[in-house]
Nucleic acid binder design. Structure first.
Lengths: 343, 343
DNA sequence: GTTAGCACTCCCATATTTTGAGTGCTGATA
DNA sequence: TATCAGCACTCAAAATATGGGAGTGCTAAC
């Protein structure tokens, strides 16, 4: 496949923008006029034809204008879309609003989700931090019946995680108490990930043979089964006011997408490797059964590790120029907040 | 307003059933034929006219058949609908399925929600137990920093509730430990409700002046702020396959309803006073802004107290004869399960 | 390579008609 | 007095026609 010429790029960019703005197939004649291209409609048609062969545009039917394909959007987002500058969009009030919100972490995430949704007028979505990467502050073990111990982890961000673990051997309250102390002092400051991959091994050697040894195994088991990532979604109603979305097929795939939280979490996870805003367009979201929806997402960090994901879901035909910087900005905001809260 | 005659009741019943089955306005001629009434269409029209004046039926337009109003459904559900017998519907497999599911309470509720949704082919909904009414098994207080104590409550159903509480005075670890023991032994077996209204007062006297006294106030504060009721909703996608629901107005009010979880929880709470299945038809759900949706719900118990609510949301035109016994049956199932698990 | 011109296509909005299922009313009947 | 046949009327929905507009593809000339 040959490369795209300069002029074709320019045309594609304008077509996508025009389509995003109006939602109507872009035809050669009116388009040339509106954007005062210095070429004739006929030439425009030729260019459009080429862009179609390249896979960037398509036809609803023979005598209709062109609309972008998913690939077209992808090219647009990757190479052609110049985002608005944050300062132009004045998101200052988000910051203010946000700072006024409660310190309780769950509520913070909820309000971030609502913000994303209300500013974008689409659906906001937040994946709460992966506990693996948040630093542990304190650990307690509490016996709740002869066969069960409750493991409580308090993270630096103030989140409390609890996990019931079954134990076979009987363990006295004293041992639990002393183990708690040991764990707290050994683990403090490290992330669950560090603990699992490194610290726990070292401790095995250090305490081998002691009473506390018994607990280490179960603690490891418990740590491995922690999976406390939640997903918040807000603004489903917004989606209903978008003509593109109330197409039955689109709506179905959207609702199916957000209902399968587990699946959705996995999709969001794919952003984890990257530090910048990621866009998933149409079938890119979930191999080919998602139609007409895009996800714009980015990570926020705790410390210097990517911890969770936030973003916006809406129609493929959304205004990426605005949504991308919004998601970007919100991501930084949350990162800042979390780094203050967790020190 | 005059009473409804025997014959009118019979006709209304058949009309509602016919409309539930077909979704099309019921006209006099074909209706008389199909149900082999021994009256002429003309007479039927007279009866329909009367039922309309009574507020049970309405007209989409002059020359269309009749459809039930919300009041019509209400009368039908209250007086005319003979539910199917559980045994006829063979919900045995629900029980089997259910018993195979995990003991983790959250997962149990999730799978109940999914069941309600998949059997009814509508949206299933479960409000998790109000912790106020579940018996406490154990209480722990753990210091997480100089100004904060973590209160951990383990209920008999195995649910772990935790609440951070701020304290002004410094409390030693030993005092927390001894208070934990005292609280556990004094509270065990009582519900949080009992504790708040009764036990706590008695303890104030008993321990007045002692070190542990300091903690009682904060514990009370914490208990008052516990609000851990969750809502599970499953099967939103089912809703999209129902022609009645994809009316824009209906869908909007449905989505708005389930998105406002807090509001929805309140609505579900209204069932709490009753031991039988409750039906909320259309505007009955939420004063007049809900259109076209009904909620069928009932309570499940822990011990002998109504603890939570489960049910089904779907179009006003749903088959109450099936949905009502389904909800009823599931309610009992959960009640049984919880009484086993919490002893 | 660019462009004017032209034939052709097809959606869409707007009427127009037809059909069928319905209603309300009236006057006769048992 | 309740029932009912009959009839005129209503209305939505489906089928059918019509014109216009915006588009395309292609070709031949610049």
């Amino acid at each position: 496949m040959r490369a795209v010429t300069e002029r074709e790029s320019e045309v594609l960019k304008s077509i996508v923008q025009e389509y995003i703005a109006t939602g109507r197939p872009v035809g050669s004649r009116s388009f040339v006029q509106k954007y005062s291209f210095s070429i004739s409609p006929a030439t425009m048609r030729n260019i459009m034809y080429d862009l179609e062969s390249l896979g960037f545009l398509t036809h609803p039917h023979t005598s209709a204008g062109r609309i972008p394909t998913d690939t077209g959007y992808r090219y647009f987002v990757d190479f052609l879309s110049d985002s608005y500058d944050i300062s132009d969009l004045d998101y200052g009030y988000i910051r203010d609003d946000f700072m006024r919100s409660e310190v309780h972490l769950d509520k913070m995430f909820m309000s971030i989700t609502k913000m994303l949704s209300s500013v974008s007028r689409l659906a906001g979505i937040v994946l709460t931090p992966n506990p693996d990467f948040t630093a542990v502050k304190q650990i307690e073990l509490v016996s709740i019946d002869p066969e069960t111990v409750l493991l409580i982890i308090v993270t630096r961000t103030g989140v409390v995680i609890n996990k019931k673990i079954a134990i076979s051997e009987r363990v006295t309250r004293d041992i639990l108490f002393s183990t708690s102390n040991i764990l707290s002092s050994e683990f403090a400051g490290f992330s669950i990930y560090d603990i699992k991959t490194d610290i726990l091994g070292k401790m095995r050697q250090k305490y081998s043979g002691s009473d506390e040894q018994i607990c280490l195994d179960v603690v490891e088991l418990a740590l491995n089964s922690i999976n406390e990532q939640d997903i918040f979604i807000e603004g489903i109603e917004n989606i209903l006011h978008i003509p593109d979305m109330i197409e039955k097929e689109v709506l179905t795939s959207f609702l199916r997408l957000i209902e399968e939280k587990k699946n959705l979490a996995e999709i969001m996870q794919r952003t984890m490797d990257s530090d910048s805003v990621q866009t998933f367009i149409g079938s890119e979201i979930d191999n080919s059964y998602v139609v007409g929806c895009s996800l714009v997402a980015c990570c926020y960090k705790i410390g210097n590790k990517n911890a969770g994901v936030l973003g916006v879901i809406g129609p493929t035909r959304m205004d990426y120029r605005k949504v991308v910087p919004l998601v970007d900005y919100t991501g930084r905001l949350v990162t800042n907040f979390l780094s203050n809260v967790s020190r």
